[in-house]
Design a protein around this nucleic acid. Sequence first.
DNA 1: AACTTGTTTCGACGTCTATCGATACAGCCG
DNA 2: CGGCTGTATCGATAGACGTCGAAACAAGTT
Lengths: 126, 126
Amino acid sequence: MSKQAGLPVLEQDEAVCCAPMVREPLGEEAAAELSRMFKALSDPIRLRLLSLIASHEGGEACVCDLIGPFDVSQPTISHHLKVLREAGLVGSERRGTWVYYWVLPEALAKLSALLEIPAVSAKAPA
Amino acid sequence: MSKQAGLPVLEQDEAVCCAPMVREPLGEEAAAELSRMFKALSDPIRLRLLSLIASHEGGEACVCDLIGPFDVSQPTISHHLKVLREAGLVGSERRGTWVYYWVLPEALAKLSALLEIPAVSAKAPA
DNA sequence: AACTTGTTTCGACGTCTATCGATACAGCCG
DNA sequence: CGGCTGTATCGATAGACGTCGAAACAAGTT
């Protein structure tokens, strides 16, 4: 790897990402993984689901709490939850009759950090 | 325009969003607008384009700088840039022969704030 | 065991998206 | 002016995605 650090280098997270993208171009792998997460956020229903789960009392919600607010069928909600889970944004567990979902904060933090603007801006508006 | 600069304007939550979604559920409108932005980020090429633009010297890059790093055709890159522009993530301008793109920092900041985890975790006592 | 309620999976359908090659448009230069 | 280079648009096509109803699966109740 001939990568010698004179600089903090970061080595940030495990494999992929997490310094602001404004700092240096994303590699292909990092972009692929991150785009999968953003894709999970690219649907309004999933975005609302995520915020419902995150803001729910106790930090988790059962599916039964999540179908009411939407106009789509229950299987559709289940599908969206699966997408969020497979993107690594939420975790889930069955407890008795109900299945509970909660947000995985590290995932959100990762995306948030990526989009962060380091200093003043990338470019000042004219 | 009675808008004179003293501050970077901000005004963020005008209609839509911007407190961490962990705090309170997103409304339908907010979710719709935000999902459009995330959709623009849901493609690896667009993600890399954005980071290339953002990290480019001077905070902006011309299209000619952006086609080299990718395996796709020039029209495809142009298409992706259009998607980023229509999502409000980048601005562009023609200067002579070349067209330049730059990141709109407020847009990234908005998304970043949305995904931010307020305190320790999603769990908040009532 | 049979019934009931909560959740996921399956198969199908229409729409949206990424990509391409061809082509049109915009400025520069000889 | 005519040609050249950089960029955007167009039309077509293959694949992905959101949605549904039906059916399967899971756990509790009678």
